[in-house]
Computed example of a mutant assay.
Amino acid sequence: MVAQNTVAQETSTARMLALLMVTGGLLAVTLIFAKLASDAGIPMLWYQAVVTGIAGAVQLGIAALTGQIRGDARHLTLYAAGAGAFQATPSGMAYLAIGHVGAGYVSLSFAFPILLTWVIARLLGMERPSTTRLIAVLLGLGGGILLAVAKFSGAPGGTRAWILVATLIPVVLAMGNIYRSRFWPHGAPAVLLAGMMLVACAGWSAIAAYASEGPMPVAIFTDRLWLLLTLGNAATFAVQFVTYFMLQRAGGPVALSLIGSVAGVIGAAVAISWFGETMPVTTPVAAVMIAIGIALMLRSQKAAVV
């Protein structure tokens, strides 16, 4: 019996690690696509609306083909509307800021939600006290603070406002992590929820885009580069949010927030090697702190299964 429990624990931890790495890596890819889209001059809120709309439609199509859309699926609409708003807001902030502060810093800002999510979850009684988790989230946050302070101190005045926007992204992300876990519809499949959330995200994004950027540019569908960047990011979103919801269901909101740490390290590495961006001198130390935090969080997750 003990041996069976040990195998189950190891399988659960390995599955969570795999979901964490895949989801975090795909998040980094979406941010890289956003950087390329910004450099290409695509209106970023319309870009977000079209990308999430296509991805959500693909997922809903898969859900329909696999029999996940049933007669009672309409009760998920309110949940999806809220989840879509929590997705559209931080993504929009990231897409708008990325052209000003770079893909590296925006990626690394996604490492911040760990502590915020854990604190909110503890206040709501969704997490039990854990010294290991406290140390893990403090390490992740500490790494993020090292980067933020160094980035802010060396930035020109006009860029500092966008640094603050990027730094506030984790606050909304943490709230979204809590919302999705606390109000998760019982028995709802991940693909259906992900599809509905992304379609709602597209709707909220389109409203904001029309108000701030005017009518949607037809070039998103006619310009070859714009279309390639749109379809590539939509495909990434479609896969990412299936694993995203699977990870949330398996590990809860705090474990889910670790994808930001993975995306931060991968995104920063790509920004430096592909786009020639410069990162603060504290980046290596911050990356080590984040990596240790991930290891501790996974260890505490394994202990929770015992």
Score class of each variant (00 low, 15 high):
R224Y: 13
F237T: 00
G276I: 06
L247S: 00
I259L: 12
W274N: 05
F221G: 05
A269K: 03
S257D: 08
W274T: 14
T230M: 13
V218C: 01
T278Q: 15
L228K: 11
V262H: 02
L229K: 08
A268C: 15
A250E: 15
N233R: 01
F221M: 14
L228I: 13
Y244H: 15
L247A: 10
A250P: 07
S261M: 12
F241V: 00
S273N: 09
S273R: 12
T278R: 15
V262G: 07
N233H: 00
I272M: 15
T278K: 13
P215H: 08
I220E: 01
A238T: 07
V242L: 10
M216G: 06
S261H: 07
V218I: 13
F221Q: 02
P217V: 08
W226H: 13
V218Y: 07
A263M: 04
W226M: 09
V218W: 13
A238V: 04
G252W: 00
A268I: 06
L229M: 11
T230R: 01
L256V: 06
W226V: 05
T243I: 05
R224D: 14
L225K: 14
A255N: 09
A255F: 12
M246Y: 03
P253S: 12
G232Y: 03
A263T: 01
V265Y: 02
A234Y: 02
T278E: 15
L225T: 15
A255L: 15
V218R: 13
A235R: 02
V254Q: 03
F245D: 10
T278S: 15
V270W: 13
L231Q: 01
I266L: 14
F275K: 08
F241L: 10
V265D: 00
L256C: 06
G260Y: 00
L256D: 07
R249Y: 08
L229D: 06
L247D: 01
P253N: 04
T230L: 14
A235T: 04
T243W: 03
V239P: 07
N233M: 13
A271V: 11
A268M: 15
V270G: 11
T230S: 10
N233E: 10
A234Q: 04
F245Q: 12
R224Q: 14
G252E: 06
R249C: 08
F275C: 10
Q248T: 11
T278M: 13
I220G: 06
G214Y: 06
M246F: 05
V218Q: 11
A263W: 00
G267Y: 02
S257Y: 07
Y244I: 00
A234R: 00
R224H: 14
A268P: 07
P253Q: 02
T222E: 11
G267K: 02
W226L: 05
V239D: 05
E277R: 07
Y244E: 08
Q248A: 12
G251M: 05
Q248V: 09
L256M: 15
F245P: 01
I272G: 09
V242K: 00
W226K: 05
W226C: 01
V242T: 03
T236P: 09
T230F: 03
T222K: 04
M246G: 00
R249W: 06
R249M: 12
D223H: 08
L227I: 08
G267F: 05
S257C: 13
Q240Y: 11
L225M: 12
L228P: 02
